[in-house]
Structures are given as C-alpha cells and as structure tokens.
Nucleic acid binder design. Structure first.
Lengths: 239, 239
DNA sequence: GCCGATGATTGATAATTATCAATTACAGCC
DNA sequence: GGCTGTAATTGATAATTATCAATCATCGGC
C-alpha cells in the first residue's frame, strides 16, 4: 500500500467519523482504530431520478448507504412485468446481498434524487474479520431488511386495493421527516401493491376528491393519516 | 465452567461434526477448534404437527436449524386475520432475528413433524467473535432468508389466484426431495396467498378434476409440474 | 358400524378488480 | 402560443374473487 492511499483512507475515515448521519449508518459504532481497515476512501455518489445504482445480475463489489433520497428495488418477472420489492430511504443499506458474493438480486433505481456512500465489499469483510464492532450493525441491518420485507408482505396482503393503497401511503409517510410524503407514480404503485395502474389511479383520484390526499407537486403530497388509518382498518360505509 | 459441562459441549460438538446434514447447516464450515466456543451442548428438539417452536414476541435466546419436517412462520394482523410469512424446510434457520436481540417476529408452528437443533444465541455470538468461519454461513443464511422473502412476494404478486396456487405448489415441490409434495390445508394456503379459504379450495378442487394434482394423503400429493408451469405463465384457454 | 367434529367442497350472489379504450392534464420545447 | 409526448384519469364491460350459506367427506373414538 502506498502512503498516499493510506492517507486517503484516513481522510475518508475521519470524514466518516464526522458524518452527520453516522448514527443512522452501518459504521455507527466503529472506533477510530476500526477505520484502519478501510483500504480505499469511502466514495460518495449522487444520482438523479430514474438513474440506476446497479442492475439485477451485476457483479456486486459494493454495498451502499443511502445518505438522502429514495431508491426502489425492482425485480422483473419472466412475463415482462415488474415488481417493486422495497423502497429504501436515508440510513438504509442497498445491496446487502453483495456480502454473499451473489449477483445483485434487483435493479436499484432512484425515485428521488439520492446520494450514497459506496462501501466496498472487501473492506467490509476485512473490517468485520478484524474488529467485532461491525457485526452488530450488520446483524441489525439484515434484521431491518427482513422486517421491512415482512411489512411489504403485509401491505400486499391485507385486504382490498383501497386498503392497501392507504397502508402504502402511511408507510411512505413514515419514511419522511416532513409532513409531506412521497407518492410514487401510479404504475409504480401498481408494482408495489400488485394492482393495475388504472386501479391505483382510481383510488388516488378518489382520495383526492375526498381530501385525503393533496398534491403539492407531482410526487409530493400531504395526507390525512387519520382517515387513511380508518380505511386501512376495513370498509367505511360513508359516501 | 465445570469439566463435565465442557465434556458435554465437546460431545455435542463431535456430534455436530458427524451430523448427517452438516453440509446444509449453519455449522457447515466450522473447524474442530471452533466448536470449543460452544459452551452448552447442542440440544435436539422434536415437535409434532400443530405444536409451536416459539411465539411472536417471545424473548429470543436461541435460533434453530431445521433437521427435518416443515415449519410455518405466522404473523397475526391487528384485525385477527393471519398471514403465513414463510415456510421452512430441512437446513433452513428459524429465528435468525434472535441474533439482533429482538423479540421473535412470528409464530413458528410445525406443519410436518419436525426436529431441530437449538443454537443458543450467546454461543453463536461468541463463536462469531472468536472465529471467522461462521460469518460466511450467517451471511449466506441472511441472504437465503431475503431471497426467500422475495420469492414469497413474487408468489403473492404474480397474477390471479389460480396462477398463484400453481406457483405455490411448484415452490413447495422444490422443498421436497421426493416426487410427492406437501400441500397445506386450504386455510393456510389462503394465509400464504392472500386469498380466501373458499377460493383456495375451488382451485385445488379444479386441479384435482384436471388431474393436475393427486392426493396420496391429506397433505401429500403428486403434482403435474408441466401443467402447473403452463398455468403459472398465464391463462390457458382450454376447458 | 355409528356419531360428531373438522375440513373440503360447492352454489348463488355481490363486490372488487382487470381489461380495453378514450379522454384529459400537463410539462417541455420549438 | 401551439405541439407533442407522457402520465393520469375516467368509462364500460367482463373476469375474478369475496361473502354467506349449505352440503359433503373423512377420520377418530365409541
């Protein structure tokens, strides 16, 4: 290793330590010594809406921490249709499967302009071998991913399309700090909820008429959580 | 530690090393030395159909390897309905969330008489800290769990009830060594596919009439994979 | 062999959703 | 401002599924 490479790594490390969202990310409980095992500087990536972080089947050599923005994980089925497997937000890890040296399982596509930290697989592995601090976080991340998958299953599963849309909006609202909430386009909502674009559109249109949702911009809206919760719970018998 | 405890651990360890399905399980690539870190003997558990390995919310102090049988992971929703999150078979790990010290996320209920190895969380953690061999396997297991969850999502997601039932049967057939395949009762099929018991029943009855499935016993049947695959792909326009 | 209980099946009907086909809204661009 | 392409919405209809309600099978126990 050349000295300047090490310097770079150190720089990156010290940057990591000062990271504003460090409490949210994989490196949350590393010590200063642990950063020695990062042999490359941690690079930051910026991507715009519609761009791709990686594709299904790509050889995985890094995982990514979402610093800001939103990312969807998309899986294409044999019949050409697609499903959205999960939506990831600040602090989430994308591409955890890289650690298992398997090809990426999904396409990772930007929904809302996003920035990432790129964590090379080899560094993560060596860090894990030499220091025990990462393991706890990795465990927590896997855990997080699994329970997210469970929530996704629940959304898909619970009741009729209208209830599912309501549940999805509430779930998306949890992913935002502010009062406004990201609303996917109708096709993507269909891809998440296993309904057609038209059904998604009809329901959102109805919600708009009922003042349950108000759009501030094409993909940003405020929602009436109380009403949505009622809808989630079952059928409401009012006009 | 008392000598006899150590002896017990060693015994268990040497048993693990001779385990007939060791290539399938979490300890697949441990060395003899690694087993030193198991401070309790690995206990084996046998449970019958309908019995519970653990309940949602239980304090988790162990994970389990399925040695034989089938287990369903069940999650109850706020409205009293339930969903089956996954079905686990030989070699799979149950209760991986225990490593994160979180309560178990599901109920684990026996579908087909099963035996388990009980792996205490503390042992797994200490083993992981002291030896690098477990990490690879744990990674692989998490990975496995995630891609299983993906498949589950796909099953739930792809097309109409009939297609989903077909897909489920094919998936269950993969979980069996023999030609015959475990078929859940209609209520459980509903819990997996997010359809009603009646719909599940109608479809299975139709499959029976069409000789796509033939029951050998209430929960065991041979299936015509080719026909099921056709159904999976979309609608078939024959009587 | 009979009984009771549980699960599976079937029927009739209403509610929900997909499908096909326009139409409308809107942003970007010349 | 008009044009164009994309996304959203709406309508009409058929297909699918839920719901409610019986009926049928089967298995264990007596």
């Amino acid at each position: 290793m050349k000295p300047n490479q090490i310097d770079n790594a150190w720089q990156a490390a010290s940057k990591c330590e000062q990271c504003a969202i460090r409490h949210l990310v994989l490196f949350a409980n590393l010590t200063k010594d642990d950063f020695d095992y990062l042999h490359q500087p941690i690079k930051e990536l910026h991507l715009n809406v519609g761009e791709t972080l990686y594709n299904q089947g790509d050889e995985p050599n890094a995982l990514y921490t979402v610093r800001s923005g939103l990312v969807k994980l998309v899986s294409y089925l044999s019949d050409g249709s697609f499903r959205i497997i999960r939506i990831l937000k600040q602090g989430d890890i994308v591409g955890l499967e890289a650690l298992d040296n398997k090809a990426y399982l999904h396409h990772a596509v930007i929904l809302k302009t996003a920035s990432f930290c790129r964590l090379p697989v080899e560094d993560i592995k060596s860090l894990n071998t030499h220091s025990p601090h990462l393991f706890t976080q990795l465990t927590a991340r896997w855990q997080q991913t699994m329970s997210d998958a469970d929530i996704w299953l629940t959304i898909l599963t619970k009741g009729f399309a209208k209830q599912r849309v309501a549940y999805l909006l509430l779930h998306l609202a949890e992913k935002t700090e502010t009062e406004s909430c990201y609303v996917p386009n109708r096709e993507d909502m269909g891809g998440i909820l296993a309904i057609t674009t038209e059904t998604a559109s009809r329901i959102i249109a109805e919600f708009k008429r009922d003042r349950i949702i108000s759009f501030l911009s094409p993909h940003l809206a405020t929602i009436d959580k109380k009403k949505l919760l009622v809808i989630t719970h079952g059928k409401n018998h009012d006009a």
